[in-house]
């Protein structure tokens, strides 16, 4: 009996080693393969094609055969989605953490969890249906484009923001609130003057993670206005290019080895972007952890 038990435990240890080795193997294989394949294309032409870099950066000359328009498209998407999602998400998080009663909070949490679970292609379909409805009713000229995609990405990022805000506020020491009320502050004053500044880092971490989520999504924008060739994003309602879609498009449709190398180059650029956001988010959260050390800071998704 004892021996059999020990056997099971060695099996458990052996298997855990196997699983633990699997993760770095996969990561190294992926990043290594990406770097090796992206290497031939790396350089200014990857971004700007045959357009001079300075002229492209200042917007004086259009860029062809380069991924600069896709980079700008992705950055515009991130910016717009943040503009929509951050105020809404942080406000909702604050409401759930500080204002809502127990029952309200449970109901809203269910809605937020549900929103977090909705597949991004379904959110894209929602955006597409929204445009169809607008066209059939009071805005016959409504069209898929940058703003609609940003709206869909905001919907995807929203649950991350809400949960990050809420969890950060809930991990703040109760003494902070007591002190605030003790000074005769109203709830809003406590929230705006004490709790939000104290939780700034945690919320910022959540914001950055949500932004990374918006930057990488492909399925939602696939249905809401991204195209393969559009040049620089021109207007809120115009079609645009974006990095994740560009990669998807080239992976399926490359005509020449150079185009395939560009796909890998774009993938490396996107990975660097999301990787940077990831590191920034970690820095924010670890500082928060240090500030309120001794407290359990929630595990971030």
């Amino acid at each position: 009996m004892v021996k059999r038990g020990q056997g099971a435990e060695s099996a458990l240890i052996g298997f855990s080693w196997l699983a633990a080795l699997f993760v770095p193997t996969v990561l190294c294989a992926m990043v290594g393969f990406l770097v090796v394949r992206a290497w031939p294309s790396w350089g200014a032409p990857l971004f700007f094609g045959d357009t001079p870099a300075l002229a492209a950066l200042t917007g004086r000359a259009p860029v062809f055969d380069g991924i600069w328009p896709a980079c700008v498209g992705t950055l515009s998407l991130i910016g717009l989605a943040s503009l929509i999602a951050i105020p809404l998400g942080v406000a909702t998080g604050v409401f759930l953490a500080e204002y809502a009663g127990r029952r309200t909070r449970m109901a809203f949490s269910l809605a937020v969890d549900l929103l977090a679970g909705v597949p991004s292609i379904v959110v894209g379909l929602f955006g597409f249906a929204l445009i169809l409805l607008l066209r059939r009713t009071f805005a016959p000229d409504a069209n898929t484009g940058l703003l609609l995609s940003a709206l869909c990405l905001a919907v995807l990022a929203l649950p991350y923001l809400i949960n990050a805000t809420r969890l950060t506020l809930e991990t703040l020491p109760a003494g902070l609130r007591l002190a605030g009320f003790g000074l005769g502050l109203t709830r809003w004053q406590v929230v705006s003057r004490l709790l939000l500044p104290a939780s700034l880092r945690g919320v910022s971490g959540g914001v950055v993670l949500a932004v990374a989520r918006a930057a990488e999504d492909t399925a939602a924008i696939l249905l809401t206005g991204v195209v393969a060739n559009a040049g620089m994003p021109g207007s809120l309602t115009g079609k645009y290019e974006a990095l994740p879609f560009h990669i998807y498009y080239l992976a399926a449709e490359y005509q020449t080895p150079a185009e395939l190398a560009q796909a890998f180059g774009s993938a490396l650029v996107l990975l660097c972007l999301t990787g940077t956001l990831f590191v920034v988010a970690r820095v924010f959260q670890r500082r928060l952890h240090r500030t309120w050390s001794g407290m359990e800071v929630a595990a971030w998704r």
Partner: peptide, 27 residues
């Protein structure tokens, strides 16, 4: 080994899906 492994796992959450797809198609 626990800490680096866990950091890698968290890093994996930030890897774009389309990058996994691209690498897999050719690897």
């Amino acid at each position: 080994a626990a800490r680096p492994l866990f950091v890698s796992i968290r890093f994996m959450t930030s890897v774009p899906t389309v990058v996994y797809g691209l690498v897999s198609v050719f690897l």
